[in-house]
Design a binder for these strands. Structure first.
Lengths: 238, 238
DNA sequence: AACGGCGGGTAACAGTGTGTAACGACGCGG
DNA sequence: CCGCGTCGTTACACACTGTTACCCGCCGTT
């Protein structure tokens, strides 16, 4: 029965096309506005009227959703090249919070206007639809990860993703500084922050990475990949 | 600081507008094709070339994603009024499997064609974008649920969602037959099938529902809602 | 310098959910 | 009618992760 011969691809949903959005071309069809966001300040908050999307030009951010009873979940860490606010399209209000983890620069795209511009610019329409679909696939990737991986594996997978993102933006993929706290990572991975700490310590003890607070160095990419899928940690001869 | 005065709305992302898609109008702009899918047969499978979206006209289905190493996750149970395949937009191949849980009827919408039709029919474009965003919000709702609710709460929340869906389609919200197996539910909720069974048994023992294999009757909607958020089960006086 | 707050790390303990296993119920085909 | 396989149910022991607690170090402030 199970004759799925080739790759069933639920992949990390890499963020392709960092600069897919041609702001120049766009500005001919609608007003676009640059905005600086200070570290810790929101780009938008859940409940505010939905009026615009934001294209991230620089900086790292954190997106989270919350239920009426206070339960919260960090749903992602947007960075350069991503479109903020797509999850709120079709809603009268934003359905998530996005706050800057460091000083950021975003380009504001008023919403109904974007849709109209789409009609004139088929490229834009494709880009928007793509961004939405891409986000959907990424969500499903992490749902799968959270549902099927152990705590250690999730943390390893997270580090892999961060590394891949950094590489895509031209930063070092093997040595970087996490912009988010342990609690943010924990929420994102559906763990407690102590568990994230434990997992990082164990990965370090196994010689796969080194950790110094938020500074991560990936010592062995291959073994990290092994940890992220399937295999549990095996101490390597010191 | 935390002055979020009003509802931070990560809601169950109800499937609004069961018949948002005006097939009649659409058929003027592109060829649409009705297809019947027998129970157990796929609408599409992961890895097949992505060529079309499908609008569900009747029946219940199951969507799942899989990683290269065999890990799997049921990501949803589409039904009448939903658009299948949106998660694969922008990919050369489908990224999920959708199989019919019972005999279904779907309308096939060739993909590149849909985009072109969007340019001519602004309504269609809005509907497509909405469908995508809606799906994204639903995904995030369940990510939140899985990350923050106990096994019992997840199962209760699942029953609530099923009830709400049935009501939206004009079926009874308090008495229905689950189309999917315990394992499907378990995968969807990131649990094991034994745990789902246990949770259902406990809800039944508490007098909140009755269970007879796949036949569910909701005895007390209010107490089910209480179980789905916050509170753990408390036996009610028999 | 002293202080307090926040983020991070570690450890002992406890509990939820899991793995395993055995059993029962139902449906299908011979 | 029987046999068999799938699905669902329940019991029990255990492991992973959550819980709780306390530690440290950093940083801004007084």
């Amino acid at each position: 029965m199970n004759t799925a011969a080739f790759v069933p691809p639920c992949t990390p949903a890499l963020r392709l096309v960092p600069d897919a959005l041609d702001i120049e071309a766009l500005s001919a069809h609608m007003t676009v506005q640059r905005r600086r966001i200070r570290a810790g300040k929101p780009v938008y908050r859940s409940g505010q009227p939905f009026r615009a999307l934001f294209f991230v030009h620089a900086g790292f951010l954190r997106r989270s959703v919350a239920a009426a009873d206070g339960r919260e979940l960090v749903t992602g860490f947007p960075m350069r090249g991503e479109l903020l606010g797509v999850e709120s399209i079709g809603s009268a209000h934003y359905t998530a919070d996005v706050i800057a983890l460091e000083d950021c620069e975003v380009v504001e795209l008023a919403y109904p206007a974007v849709l109209q511009a789409c009609a004139a610019l088929p490229v834009l329409q494709a880009a928007l639809t793509q961004a939405l679909a891409q986000e959907l696939r990424r969500d499903q990737y992490w749902r799968l990860a959270v549902a099927t991986l152990s705590a250690n594996q999730r943390v390893a997978a997270f580090l892999q993703e961060v590394a891949a993102s950094h590489r895509a933006l031209g930063f070092s993929a093997s040595h970087f500084v996490l912009r988010m706290s342990r609690s943010d990572i924990a929420s994102f991975l559906a763990l407690k922050h102590e568990t994230v700490t434990r997992a990082l310590s164990q990965l370090a003890a196994a010689g796969v990475i080194t950790v110094e607070r938020r500074e991560i160095r990936i010592v062995c990419t291959e073994r990290l990949a092994v940890c992220a899928n399937g295999a549990e940690l095996v101490q390597q001869a010191a």
